[in-house]
Design a protein around this nucleic acid. Structure first.
Lengths: 210, 210
DNA sequence: CCTACCGATCGGTAGG
DNA sequence: CCTACCGATCGGTAGG
């Protein structure tokens, strides 16, 4: 049993290498446009040799998508029990959500573009996951409304939609290594979302009716 | 020359039928996962017969993506010369942008997912298009800042990013035929974006320092 | 628009 | 992990 993988080594196992390269190629070319021979060539081996490590192409996609979902879950769901104000909680959720995407741009791209190509079981798992994330954000916002910090007339579904749009779309434009950290983006988005783009009209006197 | 296409007929030409079915299949299965035989079968003809009407698979993708870009351009760029307040202009832009997506969900999906698979010339055209749209929204927002209706400390790039996120992401969740019209979504998003989610603190008295 | 076909490439396997 | 190979399917064409 010893020696199957380098135990104290920092090198990823061959299997891990395959997942990583697959994630990159799938994000660049798309799942169906990437052949197993393309993938093998990037790893310096023959196409058939991949099957000593993995069971098939579908497993690669399924694993990449499931890992992405798990990363979001691990980043976000612990927030439920943390003692924060509603605004802090929302900001923290956006920040972590953006961080997962920013630190895994390739995986995020595969996740958002290729999940529809999964076979039925992992496909339905992803759909359930998406429902769970939407419910999570709706809950965050509903808590803020109940606490009286968000507008009482908020359409919670649409507000959650807006927040999710702002963080998810980042996979198309965010540039890791650029000037903006995921926290910067989250702070900027959250400020705009909470306070609005509009200049508030200050000290407007109460006027007599017409 | 007469009779090439039914002149007064409302039936689309075969070529148009091919584009429409291709748009649907590409959006459902992805470009590379759709074979020309799949497409032909949907039209009730043989695979090879497609080539009497089109030059190749790439032309289909290129045409679908370019049409989508044109639809956005036609909907949005006329706004530049219309006499509206900055808020009206932004709301109208979001409304039209969402309408293009809502009324062409399949095309929008192909547009956002498959443009990377274009050959170099149409690919660079799409990239230029995207730059143009970003500039358009930044300009809309900058005008509002100059007019004093948006916050002076707005990060215009990020604000445009936020607006674009909110409208573009709709291709993933909007359901045509549901309760919400694109105008409803635009009104809801615009209200939240301009005024913010937060309950404004009204009549807060000016306090003495500490 | 069909029949018949082209070379290329696909995911995957057997046997070593 | 390689060699050699499988059947299936791909985009596209010739000739009608």
């Amino acid at each position: 049993m010893i020696g199957d993988r380098p135990p104290g080594s920092s090198e990823p196992s061959r299997r891990e290498q395959i997942y990583r390269v697959a994630g990159r190629l799938f994000s660049e070319r798309g799942y169906h446009a990437t052949s197993m021979r393309d993938l093998a060539a990037e790893l310096g081996i023959q196409g058939g040799s991949l099957y000593a490590h993995i069971s098939g192409k579908e497993e690669l996609l399924s694993e990449i998508v499931q890992r992405a979902a798990r990363q979001f879950d691990e980043a976000l769901f612990s927030l439920r029990t943390e003692d924060l104000t509603p605004q802090e909680r929302l900001r923290e959720a956006m920040s972590r959500h953006l961080t997962v995407i920013a630190e895994n741009m390739e995986t995020a791209t595969v996740f958002f573009h290729e999940w529809k190509h999964l076979s039925p079981e992992p496909l339905s798992a992803v759909i359930s996951w998406r429902d769970g994330i939407e419910a999570f954000y709706r809950e965050l916002i509903a808590q803020g409304v109940e606490a009286g910090v968000y507008r009482l007339d908020l359409n919670i579904k649409m507000a959650a939609n807006l927040v999710l749009s702002s963080v998810n779309w980042a996979y198309t434009w965010y540039r890791p290594g650029g000037q903006l950290s995921p926290q910067d983006v989250a702070a900027s988005f959250e400020q705009m979302l909470l306070s609005g783009l509009e200049q508030p009209v200050l000290e407007k006197p109460i006027r007599e009716k017409k």
